[in-house]
Design a protein around this nucleic acid. Sequence first.
RNA 1: GCCGAAGUGGCGGAACCGGCAGACGCGGCGGACUUAAACUCCGCUGCCCGCGAGGGCGUCAGGGUUCGAAUCCCUGCUUCGGCACCA
Length: 866
Amino acid sequence: MATPDRAATPDRPRVERYDPAEIEPRWQARWEELDLYRTDLHDESRPKYYLLTMYPYPSGDLHIGHWYIKTPTDAIARFRRMHGDNVFLPIGFDAFGLPAENAAIRHRIHPVTWTMRNIENMRRQLRTMGATFSWDHEIVTCDPAYYRWNQWFFLRFLEAGLAYRAMAPVDWCPNDGTLAREQVEGADRRCWRCGAQVEKRDLEQWFLRITKYADELLDFSGIDWPEPVRIMQTNWISRSEGAEIVFRTAPDDHQPGGDQLRVFTTRPDTLFGATFMVLAPEHPLVEKLTAPAQRAAVEAYVQQARRRTEIERLSTEREKTGVPLGADAINPVNGERIPIWIADYVLSGYGTGAIMAVPAHDERDFAFAVRFGLPIRQVIAPADALAPVAPVAALPPGAGLPELTEAYVSKAESDVLVNSGRFSGYAAPRGAQAIVEALKHEGAGDIAVSYRIRDWLISRQRYWGTPIPVVYCERDGIVPVPDHQLPVLLPEEVDFKGSGESPLKSDPTFLNVDCPRCGGPARRETDTMDTFIDSSWYWYRYLSPHKTDGPVDRGLTDRWCPVDQYTGGAEHAVMHLLYSRFFTKAIADLGLVSHREPFRRLFNQGQILGADGERMSKSRGNVEEPGPLVARYGADTVRLFLMFMGPWDQGGPWSPTGIGGIHRFLNRVWTIALDSEGVEPGDPDAGRLPVGETYADADRAIRMAAHRTLRAVTEEYADFRFNTMVAHLMELANLLMRYRGTEAAHAPAWDEAVRLLLLMLAPAAPHIAEELWARRLEAAGEPWSSIHTERWPEVDTTVLAEELREVPIQINGKVRDRISVPAGISELEIEQVVLARPRIVELLAGRQPDRVIHAGGRLVNIVVRG
RNA sequence: GCCGAAGUGGCGGAACCGGCAGACGCGGCGGACUUAAACUCCGCUGCCCGCGAGGGCGUCAGGGUUCGAAUCCCUGCUUCGGCACCA
């Protein structure tokens, strides 16, 4: 601890030491008592600033990672407030989800109890950060007052055709039923509880039609988001343009043929090179087209594909597998019969679940053809391969082309079609166009767009989530729950043994209901919603958390949205942020909000890892708690240390090494502010101005340093560069420390520098800044007012204009000398001074400079030969 | 495999537009204060040569552009993040 009292002399009173444990709770209580940070959402006299930080999952304890995320966000809020903005910084809890349910199964504790206990704990811990959250707007997503609106949105989506039901595979354990992704463990995919082999099973589930907005979601104009996030979302959506082509099955001994087989291709120009077709094993026509002789092999393959672990299926290294159906398809462009195969490298979920295989021009098809001895026909060639032979169209098949040893995959516009009937000789892009037009004429194809993104599967076969508000009536089928019956409450008395089915099925009073339409017997939907639904609109609810006649307050969302700044982890770059954008667009189309993008600016902060470099988690035992550090150094030190560690978007492994340096810095600030007269007995030069410096020099140096620091720090806060911001404050403090006890410490410049230092420190280390501010006011006999309601100071540019600039002088790019020049001196003048310097004259040794380069007055480089 | 980010002292990192490499902090060394220790304060601290003034070498490796490159370009290596047979 600092012991400035060591410097006490009989004439001067002892100065108390810096004691964060006393200061911090006192100010936190005071701020709360004064409602200092309550945001008046209806105050229109100031510009609004909606600052959103991703709401935490209430895992139980706040770890150092939460501080790393939230603390700089709080500094931003305070910084904006000091600029006169009306800042809204809400907080809440992402309270639904699997961990609560797992706790229920493992420890026989109800998810409600577990969750609410954790939230209580985290609320208390969050307050120790000294952050300015608007607690009066808190939301908790497992509260029926919140999730009823999930249900309400779902019903609106259902009406609008944005929600629908379809079959989809889930991970299924024979003992424990449906499993979430985290419940499937290990490379061989075993159940987390019983260890049984997990398989895929098809269930009817609910989807939201996010694909309807695919094109709009690719458009990021008007929002300021990090490039990597935009790229990730763009890749996730993956729009590809091409054609859909209709093949027909050929008649044979077993079936009459004529069935349509639609394929999507980005390369219709390669149609003549299609030598076989491949269907996904799940393709609906597989059953019908399979020849009796192939039936056993096909069924075995389909079975195998279903059981295959994801790891295997995802491996691109794996050798291609597949089975012929024993049926043929007819190529619409030339009437050629080609065999139909099934193979798991064709995905049922993308395009049409079927492809035309063009082995000459697709690596995967090439590998497959080689493996199974299927023909490979080159139909695209680089222009120069054919140059000597003309006309191309007259060539016999394959003439002049070397045999392919690998697929020729090229997007060169100069490529030419060969072996393609009347299209031979066309340049590839024109060939593609011509072939599609020809197909279109015959109703056998058209241009088409395909997306990688799938509709959003929101059904979860779990308890701890929002019940999906529909019932299944024996007579009326799917019936939505009417609005006035919302919320459909989660029943409390359910069975968490976790065996087989959703706990919701174990409660007959929940399960069995009267049909809202006919009053007859009906069964409730027992699936709950993906928790990403909760987080897809929570920032709207923050504005009016207690509203009962609708999910959002139109007046407030119009005024406060879109969110000005969103901060959160990059792990949400795709799912959460894409779903949120979708939700906003969807509810804009429903007329509920009047903007189409939720977050104007996004910043991804990095992640703090455990000391072992791994993600912090209880199971790894590498969770770092801030509690002991706060107890030892205080919240301000911990806040500042987290900001100082490195760039905020970088994160990294946790190490408290160096936190003492921050604490020493705050001690120095304390000393500077309260004990400017004191001198350090350990410093031989203490109390004396540096050699050769006059009082006026010192005064100017202090003023200059303060304003230079202010200029830098202001920019650094605005750009979230907190690490260098802290470094600049340290530099200023170090400089002031040198003048402590000298006559310069009595001057107005000193006083102003201290004042600026405290104001600049206030957003980052709010408690110590407030304490020292209060003491200054008291010493000056002025009434107290909080430093956090002060205006951010202005840089005095006239001070900076007096600055002397040090200019390095290089000879052939190496620094050999330096001179001090006043700002505004001309290049010619500089050059004259430079060339007269004894050291430069000596080093030039009579040689004439070839060139003298001036880098905007920042540097001089003399270029000389030899 | 593809897409993205990044490689700088013993460590975290700084250098924002191509212009002083290593700010600031940690650690280390030396010193002051102290009966002593802790605390605090002061000085030094990239590597090599030199008593010194000073010089040489240095930003993952190799090449290039430039008066000048950590920064731009090419090739390669390593690490991290995302996606992963998307027709």
